[in-house]
């Protein structure tokens, strides 16, 4: 049961914000702005370097919570939030951690649905928080029981 996993945290996972990965990502979201991909433009900016698009943290690793096993089908990404202390810099190291924040169920027009709230955090090499990310994953009852959806 997901409820028993509330409060579980992963071990931190180390990421490096790679220039090539940021460029590919910026292009894939149709936002290849110089601040993300052009080294000169980054140097000339107020940041003195390139930054990553605000949704880039979705690509990073945050460690695994072994007990968390999600069904492969019947999942809906319901909500997504990012909160930043500052922009994410190209080239920096980010330590990602994931935590199960909440799980609750609601009955609606599609039957009983489960809502899993997952928080992820990214901290820099000095241990300062850069961003938090929250996802709400909606799990329908059929998927939860392991039935074909």
């Amino acid at each position: 049961m997901f409820k028993e996993l509330i409060g579980k945290r992963s071990a931190p996972s180390k990421n490096v914000i790679e220039r090539g990965a940021v460029k590919k990502f910026a292009e894939a979201i149709n936002d290849p702005a110089p601040i993300y991909i052009d080294e000169k433009a980054g140097k000339a900016s107020r940041y003195g370097r390139n930054i990553a698009p605000p949704t880039f943290p979705i690509t990073l690793e945050y460690g695994a919570i072994e007990e968390l096993v999600l069904p492969t089908k019947g999942l809906i990404h319901g909500e997504q939030k990012f909160h930043y202390k500052r922009p994410l810099f190209v080239g920096e190291e980010v330590y990602g951690v994931t935590e199960i924040k909440n799980y609750y169920e609601r009955t609606g027009s599609f039957g009983k649905m489960g809502f899993l709230v997952i928080e992820r955090q990214g901290t820099d090499a000095q241990g300062e928080l850069i961003f938090t990310e929250e996802q709400i994953i909606i799990i329908n009852e059929a998927a939860r029981k392991g039935m074909p959806v």
């Binding site: 894939a28 936002d31 698009p53 949704t55 997504q80 990012f82």
Partner: peptide, 29 residues
């Protein structure tokens, strides 16, 4: 991908990176 759409939407703010940054970005799909 919902995140593809969310990623595209943020581009409206990219021209303002010298003025400030996105502190909170919250989306419902």
């Amino acid at each position: 991908h919902g995140m593809w759409t969310m990623g595209n939407l943020a581009k409206l703010f990219t021209p303002y990176v010298e003025d400030g940054f996105i502190e909170d970005y919250a989306i419902r799909f």
